[in-house]
Nucleic acid binder design. Structure first.
Lengths: 335, 335
DNA sequence: CTGAAAGCGCTTACAG
DNA sequence: CTGAAAGCGCTTACAG
């Protein structure tokens, strides 16, 4: 015999397939004695339900899909762990997709999730995928935005206040006497980058002195930080910054490596403040000051929100939750 | 109308559902003119195939499931990226599950993958799941082991030589004059841990002097490293080690933090060698010497192997590929 | 190259 | 509490 099916289990237990299905999906409807017989038949045959058939008939897929921006960034794996913590209680599988910030890969995963008729999708979007998300929702897949594009008021979202983060980082640099601040990050069209940058500029303006130089990068990893430093060092000495505000910690670590390699002292010559406060920030060569983001909390909050929407798509109200970052001061800015 | 289906597309294009299906799955069988009409009908209706129905009928799921041991460890996300690189060429979705080293979670994902009748599974096992893997294989899901339990000769596998890694790390410590080496990692039943530890002991024996103290931890993260240091410091001063061989870099970073906090100088008082050479090892407070593992290569190799097995489960031969680690010397051991 | 018919394995009302 | 029947949406031989 090939793989055991419902009918085999039913035959062995001496019941109908419908009763086996009820035992699996609505055990309260089945008498304990029957339940027990079915269970031993399942064990004996090693029966494993065919999920495709279940999904097709039931019209729903309990799994939750999550599209993560960059799996190489511990910040996002922390978010994912927060999500897992919540979903595991509900016994829902989490399907992780990594867009690597590439719109094409993001679209591929959206296609997949749409084809699979998932119950819910969590996404930190790369490209403008609002139309796709609307279509998903119209087809019965609930959507919650994580950490980005929360301007889309029609979807619930969880984010962390980037304006506040940009401000407190910049105020800290100004308060410790820095004036020529290079902001390294990109691309500029990411709201994270633009919000943090705008807030930095606003803080400088409010302070009345200082200036922000924007060094745009193509990505947000250590390599981008190293390239950013190259650009800074190409500037005339008089314009060289006395501080770097890196748009995330990976960039900050790259900046730190490149500066150290050139013999430029951190924080004496140039201070560095990072963003995210990933675990590795505190164990860096020069421990990094950083804007701590509650990543895991963001993940668990987003997952809870999503489960609410799934439970009641019609009446659940759209919610936008904004969490607060906080500054963690370490050696990289204590000059 | 609800969501568009094959029959809607067929009606709009003026063909039968069978022809639409052929257009989607075997375009060569359909005339170009019909293909074009079907395509515009698909676009107009926003048709998205129902994957559950496709899977049920076709009896196969192109997706590949991967069970990762610890998504918080950059080593494993590097492996996953290697896998993605290969699968993307084949346009196969990668479904990532994170076991977090918990047997229960591992089993949950195996259940899920089995229910979904996946084409293939890549796994770095936590518990002894050989029986489960055999059953998967017997049901038509190809399996390749990644980085663990390669003693299971019946499944193809890719691993990195842990005996060699343990040896070169220990020989390096001995060559730089260290004699009392604490090996921190665990649990002891992980083959990685036991292989590296045995190799360390063998290297000490071959050298003729020195000793290995095994400090077993419950996990392999920074917290475990910090706890390991507590235990070391509880030892009488005369037995205090002059070197730590950490079973991975996360443990090593925890060890470094805890030692630094106590005012113990690295490498002067105690040298540290880590394992994996994750990106963060080189940017640590004291840059870490580490045994570099070709993580991404392991991932891409495993994925290629898996695709081979899937392409021809009957005749493809079982292969065991072992990659070589290499020692990267940095400041943490240059006393 | 195209279509009518059957069926993948399950679950869902419904009747009893 | 249990079962007979229908059908979820697609693809697969097969006939034409």
């Amino acid at each position: 015999m090939a793989v055991a099916q419902v009918r085999d289990v039913a035959a062995l237990a001496g019941v109908s397939p419908a009763t086996v299905s009820n035992a699996l999906n609505h055990p309260a409807k089945v008498s304990p004695a029957t339940l027990a017989r079915i269970q031993s038949a399942i064990d004996e045959l090693g029966y494993i339900r065919n999920d495709a058939a279940r999904q097709l008939r039931a019209g729903t897929n309990r799994a939750i899909g999550m599209i993560v921006l960059d799996i190489a960034n511990p910040f996002f794996t922390d978010v994912a762990r927060g999500v897992e913590d919540v979903l595991i209680v509900d016994q829902r599988p989490l399907i992780l997709g990594n867009s690597s910030q590439e719109p094409r890969r993001e679209t591929n995963y959206l296609d997949l999730f749409e084809q699979q008729r998932m119950n819910g999708v969590l996404i930190t979007p790369v490209a403008n995928v609002l139309d796709r998300l609307r279509r998903l929702r119209d087809r019965g897949t609930s959507v919650v935005l994580v950490d980005r594009m929360t301007g889309a008021k029609e979807f619930s979202s969880v984010a962390i206040d980037d304006t506040m983060g940009g401000r407190i980082a910049t105020e800290h640099l100004l308060a410790t006497g820095r004036r020529r601040i290079a902001f390294i990050g990109g691309p500029a069209n990411l709201t994270q980058v633009s919000d943090r940058l705008s807030a930095a500029r606003a803080a400088v303006e409010a302070h009345g002195s200082g200036e922000i130089t924007f060094v745009e990068t193509e990505a947000m990893n250590a390599g981008a930080g190293r390239i950013g430093v190259e650009q800074l060092l190409a500037l005339p000495a008089a314009q060289r910054p006395d501080a770097v505000f890196a748009a995330n910690d990976l960039v900050a670590l790259g900046v730190l490596q490149a500066l150290t390699l050139r013999g430029i002292k951190v924080p004496d010559d140039i201070a560095i403040v990072g963003y995210d406060d990933i675990d590795f920030a505190s164990s860096a060569a020069i421990p990094l000051s950083s804007v701590r983001q509650p990543a895991q909390t963001m993940g668990s909050t987003a997952a809870s929100l999503l489960l609410d929407v799934i439970a009641d798509p019609a009446t659940s109200t759209v919610q936008h939750i904004t969490l607060k970052p906080e500054l963690v001061v370490r050696r990289s800015t204590e000059g």
